[in-house]
Design a protein around this nucleic acid. Structure first.
Lengths: 349, 349
DNA sequence: GAGTTGATTGATACCGGTGTCAATCCCCCA
DNA sequence: TGGGGGATTGACACCGGTATCAATCAACTC
C-alpha cells in the first residue's frame, strides 16, 4: 500500500537558501514574494542560491502562515460530466502559470446539510476561493455563506446570480431565442418545447428565450406543446412521445438540453418519423452527443471552458501573471451551432 | 474580487481546546489521532471541549508538521471527460468519510517535460498519494518516479501495469472477446475492427480481445478489415467509410470505443445502410453516447466508478473507516451491455 | 517503607514559511 | 565630524499542528 523510500534526499527549505546566500530567511521570503526594498546585490545572491538548490517554497507552510490554502475549490453538483470537466479545464487553463491548485468538491444538492457541509469543507481547507457551478450556485444562501466567511467566490449560472464580481454567465437566453427564431424563419409555427427541471435557473432561462422568440413572432405557445423534463435522456423520450402523439403534432421541437433532444429523437424514430424531414430538432449544450447522433443535432454551444477561465480570473486574478478577460466581463456569448437536424417543415404541415 | 469580511469569529485551534479541557495540546493531539495511553477521564474532558468549541483540526498545520498534504492527486491526460469524471466520483465515494481531499491535475502527455512537471507538482503539493489514469499511467517512468519519491501511487489501466498494490484494471480484454464471440455466435464471419491509437495499452488490449475471439472461432482477420483509429469520432467515421467500401464488406464492426462507433454509424447511414439490419455494431465504454444514438449501441461497460473506489482504497485504505473492496483485488469485471445495434447478418451475406 | 515499573501527561522543539519591529547601514547636510 | 533620515536587513514570535523525551503519578514488589 504505502511504499516507503529511503530518504536520501531532503527538499531544500528557505533556511537552506538563506544560509547558502548568507542572508536571513526573511530576506529570502522577500525575494520569493517580490517585495520591494532589496539591494540588487542581495537579491541576486538569493536568486542564485534558489536556482542552485532548486528551491521551491512549501505551499503547506505558506498556507499555515497565511491562514489560507493556495487552492481554488470547484463546488458542483454533478449536473453533467462534460460540463464539469470543461469547467475544470478552463480553470486550469487560467491558473496553470500560477502556483495555485484546483480542488474539486462535489456536493449533494438534496442533502439537508448541504450548506453545513460546504461551510465545514471551506473552513477546513481554507482555499483562496470557490467557484460554484449550477445548479447549487443558484441558491442565494451559498453566496451569503461565502460572504459571511469572507471567502472569495464566483457563482456560475445561466443568468447573473450575484453582482459582477461574483458571477459569470453566458447568454443562454439570447441564443435560445435566436435558435427558435431560426426555426420560425424556416416556416415552423407549431414548435414544441421540452422544459428542464423545475427550480433550475438554466431551465427557466431557456424557457424564457423560447417564449421570447414565439411572442416576437406572434405565435401562441399552447400549453400542451410545452412538456416537462428533467435534463435526462429518459425524460426527453417521454416528452417526445407525448409531443409527437399530439394532433396536429409539432413540426419542430426545442429540447432544453442535448440529452433530452436525443430522447426526443428516439421517440421520433419509434414513430418512424424522419429528422429533419418530418421533425426539426434543436438541443442545448453542444455535448458530444450532439455530434454523435444521426442526424447531427443543431444546438446551442455554451462557452463553458471560457467561463471557467473567466471565473478563475475573477476569483484569483491578482495571483495570475496574465489574464485573458477583462475583470468587468460577466456574460460570455452562447452560440448557435447549426447542424443537420433542422429543415423547413413538410409542405402539408 | 476579494471580499474582506470583518473577522468577528476566529476558528478554535488546538490550543483553545487544550486550555478549555485543562490539558496540554499534545494530549489533545493524542485524542484527535486516537492514540492509546490516555485515561478515560482525560479523553472525555478533551472530547467535551472539542464538541463544545466545534473544533476541527487545521489540515495545513498537520500537513506542515507531518510533511505531507492530506490529499489525493488524480493525474490524468484528458482521455475523455466522462471517464475522468466517473473516476473522480469513485475516488470521492471512497474518501468521503475521511478527512482527505481530492486534487485534480491534468498533465500534457505530449510535453517533453511531462515527468518533470509531475515531479515538481508532487514535490510541491506533497499529497499522500497519486492515482494515475491511462494513458499516462501506462508509462513505466511514472511508476519509477513515484517510487523514487517515496510517493504512494496506483496506476489504472487496461491491464495490470504494476504490482498488485499499485494497479487497478478491468477485464477489458475478456469482455471484448465475449462481445465478439456473441457476434460470431449470431453468424457473423466478416467482422471489421476499428483500432484505438497506437501505443495505448487499452487499444492493444481491445485488439487482443478481438483476435482471441476470432482465433478461437477459427476465423481469419484479414488485414484490411482492421483499420486504425484514434478514439475520436472523426476517425471512427473515416474507418467506417473505409470498412464499408470493402467488397465484400463486413457484416459487423467492433469499434474500440463508443465515440468511434458513433462515427461508424454515420458512415453506415451515409451509405443508407441500416443498423442492425445491414450492419451490426459494437462499441466500448458505455458512454452516454451509447444510449443516445439510434439504435442504441451494444457496448462494453467499464466499471470506472468502482475502479476509482478501488484505486482510492488501495492508495489510502489506512485512512478510511471502511472499505468496499479487498486490498488484494486488482481486476474489476467489465461487462457486455447488449442493446439494439446487433443482429444476425443479412441472409445473403 | 523504599525502590521499581508502567501508565499518563506535559514541556519544548520543530515543520517552513510570514509579520512585526527594531537594528544597522549609508548618504547627506550642517 | 556628528546627527538625521531613508533604505536594507535581521531577530524573533507566530501560524497550528506533531514528535521526543522527560516528569509525574499510582501501584506493585520485596
Amino acid at each position: 500500500m504505502s511504499s516507503g523510500a529511503n530518504q536520501t534526499y531532503r527538499k531544500p527549505t528557505i533556511n537552506d537558501v538563506a544560509s547558502h546566500a548568507g542572508v536571513s530567511k526573511k530576506t529570502v521570503s522577500r525575494v520569493i514574494n517580490g517585495l520591494p526594498g532589496l539591494s540588487v546585490a542581495t537579491k541576486g545572491r538569493v536568486e542564485q542560491a534558489i536556482l542552485g538548490l532548486g528551491y521551491v517554497p512549501n505551499p503547506q507552510a505558506r498556507a499555515l502562515a497565511l491562514g489560507r490554502n493556495f487552492a481554488i475549490v470547484l463546488l458542483h453538483d454533478n449536473p453533467n460530466a462534460q460540463t464539469v470537466q470543461n469547467f475544470e479545464r478552463g480553470i486550469l487553463d487560467a491558473i496553470q502559470q500560477s502556483e495555485l491548485a484546483l480542488m474539486v468538491r462535489p456536493v449533494d444538492r438534496h442533502s439537508p446539510r448541504m450548506l453545513e457541509d460546504v461551510a465545514a469543507f471551506l473552513q477546513q481547507q481554507r482555499p483562496i476561493g470557490a467557484i460554484i457551478l449550477p445548479p447549487i450556485s443558484e441558491r442565494d444562501e451559498i453566496g451569503a455563506l461565502c460572504r459571511s466567511m469572507g471567502m472569495r467566490f464566483v457563482r456560475v449560472g445561466s443568468a447573473a446570480l450575484d453582482d459582477g464580481d461574483h458571477s459569470v454567465t453566458s447568454t443562454d437566453r439570447i441564443a435560445v431565442t435566436e435558435a427558435c427564431r431560426l426555426l420560425i424563419a424556416m416556416g415552423h409555427q407549431r414548435i414544441g418545447f421540452v422544459r428542464g427541471p423545475q427550480g433550475f435557473r438554466s431551465a427557466a432561462e431557456r424557457e424564457l428565450g423560447f417564449h421570447s422568440a414565439m411572442d416576437a413572432a406572434g405565435l401562441l405557445v399552447q400549453p400542451d406543446y410545452s412538456v416537462k423534463g428533467d435534463y435526462r435522456f429518459e425524460s426527453g423520450r417521454s416528452a417526445g412521445r407525448l409531443l409527437l402523439s399530439l394532433d396536429p403534432r409539432p413540426t419542430a421541437i426545442f429540447a432544453s438540453n442535448d440529452e433530452m433532444a436525443a430522447g426526443v429523437m428516439h421517440a421520433a424514430f419509434e414513430r418512424n418519423l424522419q429528422i429533419p424531414r418530418d421533425l426539426s430538432l434543436v438541443g442545448f449544450d453542444d455535448s458530444p452527443t450532439a455530434t454523435h447522433v444521426w442526424p447531427s443535432l443543431t444546438t446551442v454551444r455554451w462557452p463553458i471552458r471560457d467561463m471557467g477561465v473567466l471565473a478563475a480570473e475573477k476569483l484569483v486574478g491578482d495571483f495570475l501573471p496574465n489574464r485573458r478577460f477583462s475583470g468587468d466581463l460577466v456574460h460570455l456569448p452562447a452560440e448557435l451551432v447549426e447542424r443537420a437536424s433542422i429543415a423547413p417543415p413538410p409542405p402539408g404541415a
